[in-house]
């Protein structure tokens, strides 16, 4: 019996049982392809805004994926065979190759005691996520012919999430000391747990599509700045987390300056006040900075800090140059694009 998945859900509404023996999952979203045979088991995992809860139905308790927010259900196939690769490539691979996401699972490990003898059972793993109605990606058009014409919505909504581990964030440097960099977190760039490869998109967001023209991955920015208070989440980059080589000889003032906009990864929730961030990857570091000297107008001197100078661009991994004056300042630059 095919499992019917609701397209829109309210908080607490069951979406789908975690295990299903149906031949084809009836997904409301177009982000997955049905590639199951009659003998394939389907396992659903809770993604963002979902959780597992027990629902009582006709006297029996059934573990189900339950929504936590009001929004739209999307189901995407999890490619376990290439888990080390990026999420975007995994999604594209799952979309282009039909049998790519099918893995051999031991039935004992899946908790299925009805099939003794250790016989392998084909299991497809799908991830169920709910896109909240406040999420900027909620209004993204699903079926598009030309990906280049897709309008990526602006991050106008305030965030309903907090930074978590492996999130890529944009932050502003507020203070530097010899041992650490203090920043304030402005934006979560991507909420996926893609790790180092999740930050390959541009700042403004990007989309990718498979052969059918369906959007597979989206990189959207989530604003973390509260509306009224103006207080932001704070973070710390320790000197040993600035770069991955020569950690002991890092000079913090040669890597960042107050006012720089940086891209960093959350490595820990930290203490009560600060998140712990890291820029020890090629694509992490300063993405926008102003020079301390050579600026026009306010703060042009050395005492004015980097907020009043002219805009600089990266010339190599460790230097940025002013666009007009040609002044060169040291920074830990992020890999552009």
């Amino acid at each position: 019996m095919a499992v019917k998945v609701p397209k829109y859900v309210i908080p607490g509404q069951p979406i789908v049982p975690i295990l299903s023996t149906s031949s084809t999952p009836s997904t409301p979203s177009t982000s997955s392809t049905s590639s199951t045979s009659s003998t394939t088991k389907i396992q659903y995992e809770p993604g963002k805004n979902c959780r597992i809860d027990t629902v009582k139905h006709k006297g029996t308790n059934i573990p189900c994926i339950v929504s936590s927010v009001l929004g739209r259900v999307t189901i995407s196939k999890v490619d376990l065979s290439s888990s080390s690769s990026s999420s975007s490539s995994a999604a594209a691979a799952a979309a282009t190759s039909e049998n790519n996401g099918k893995d051999k699972y031991n039935d004992v490990s899946m908790g299925d005691t009805g099939n003794p003898g250790g016989e392998n059972v084909d299991v497809d793993v799908y991830q169920v996520t709910v896109v909240s109605k406040n999420d900027p990606s909620f209004n993204v058009v699903e079926n598009v012919e030309n990906v280049e014409n897709v309008d990526v919505p602006e991050p106008t909504k305030f965030s309903m999430s907090t930074p978590s581990e492996h999130d890529i964030v944009l932050a502003r440097v507020t203070k530097i000391t010899t041992s650490r960099i203090h920043v304030e977190i402005l934006i979560i760039e991507s909420h996926s747990s893609s790790g180092s490869t999740g930050s390959t998109g541009t700042v403004g967001g990007s989309t990718a599509a498979d052969d059918d023209g369906k959007i597979q991955t989206r990189k959207l920015m989530t604003n973390l700045i509260p509306a009224e208070s103006g207080e932001t989440f704070r973070g710390i980059i320790r000197s040993q987390d600035i770069r991955s080589t020569n950690r002991d000889t890092v000079q913090t003032w040669n890597c960042f300056q107050p006012g720089d906009i940086i891209k960093a990864e959350v490595i820990s929730l930290g203490d009560g006040v600060n998140y712990y961030l890291s820029t020890a990857k090629d694509e992490l570091g300063v993405i926008m900075a102003r020079s301390a000297v050579g600026g026009v107008g306010v703060g042009g001197g050395a005492s004015g800090g980097s907020q009043g100078g002219e805009l600089m661009c990266a010339v190599d991994w460790e230097h940025m140059v002013g666009l007009n004056s040609g002044v060169i300042e040291p920074r830990k630059c992020a890999k552009p694009l």
Binding site: I10, P11, G12, N49, D53, S68, V69, L70, G71, S132, K133, N134, D135, M160
Partner: peptide, 12 residues
Amino acid sequence: ALVDSGLQCKSM
């Protein structure tokens, strides 16, 4: 208001 806010809740 809780449903409108998008905060994660057990149920409505």
